[in-house]
């Protein structure tokens, strides 16, 4: 009995062992050494901003030459340089973008219409009577963007405003999609002068809902020596190609709706 038991169990173990060792030979997957090296230099946060399924997917595509070395958005110039070195290609520098929340109106500047006590996310708040903020374009401050940020770059201030740390932002654009108000946009990293408002109401109405809203007074448009600012839909827009960041508009804006990124 004992002999049989040992034989059967041992035989099974041996059988499976042999089967597995053959299988590992037969089904071996040849991994490109480049792919492993690239995977090491990628950030590894699997944010998906490159459009591939995670860092592993991008590394595979890069190693096979299916995509360009600049594909990793989150890694920025540094990772691109390393990837290009592994692949042995030359790259042209690309303008780096960071996400920016275009609202600085806290409780003092834009009043609350009512006390919101529903689900703790901005989408739900925005659905309830267009949200609790008086300005229907403003930041609701419940942190839906902060929750999706894989790099912990977004924080909510005491005044109920989302603020993105440009040092931590890797421009994966997840927050851009998460914001129900479309307040977050990608701005060149070097750009310091930014319109900090998305209010498209006419002057008087904009002033009623928020004390620092853009009222489309066109002072900045006229003051800009580069003619980089234009008013579109009652809202000032800066053409980043033309802007030389002289910051004259920041001084001239009567509403302080144009600011310098902190």
């Amino acid at each position: 009995m004992i002999g049989q038991a040992i034989l059967v169990l041992g035989g099974l173990g041996l059988g499976f062992g042999i089967l597995l060792s053959f299988a590992s030979r037969k089904f071996a997957v040849v991994v490109d050494p480049k792919e492993e090296k690239i995977l090491e230099v990628l950030p590894g946060s699997n944010c998906g901003a490159c459009g591939f399924p995670g860092c592993q997917g991008l590394a595979e595509a890069l190693a096979k030459g299916k995509t360009e070395a600049t594909s990793c958005v989150a890694g920025g110039a540094e990772v691109t340089k390393k990837v290009a070195k592994i692949l042995g290609v030359e790259i042209e520098p690309k303008t780096e973008l960071v996400a920016f929340v275009a609202c600085r109106a806290g409780i003092k500047q834009a009043k609350k219409k009512f006390k919101y006590r529903g689900l703790n996310n901005c989408q739900a708040d925005a659905l309830l009577f267009t949200g609790d903020k008086s300005c229907v374009y403003g930041c609701l401050g419940l942190g839906s963007c902060a929750k999706v940020c894989p790099f912990d770059a977004i924080s909510i201030t005491a005044e109920g405003l989302a603020v993105i740390d440009p040092k931590k932002c890797k421009s994966c654009q997840k927050c851009v999609k998460a914001c129900p108000r479309n307040l977050i946009s990608m701005v060149p990293r070097a750009q310091e002068v930014i319109i900090i408002c998305k209010n498209r109401d006419r002057g008087k109405k904009a002033k009623e809902v928020c004390s620092i809203a853009c009222i489309a007074c066109r002072i900045c448009e006229k003051a800009c020596p580069q003619q980089a600012i234009s008013i579109v839909d009652n809202l000032a827009v800066i053409d980043y190609q033309k802007c030389n960041q002289c910051a004259i508009c920041v001084e001239k804006c009567p509403q302080k709706a144009i600011g310098v990124r902190s």
Partner: peptide, 21 residues
Amino acid sequence: ATFILTIASLVQLEEMVIRKN
């Protein structure tokens, strides 16, 4: 004992086959 052995090896095998195919 036999089932543990069988299932463990089986999952290993499956993993290899799936990875390849």
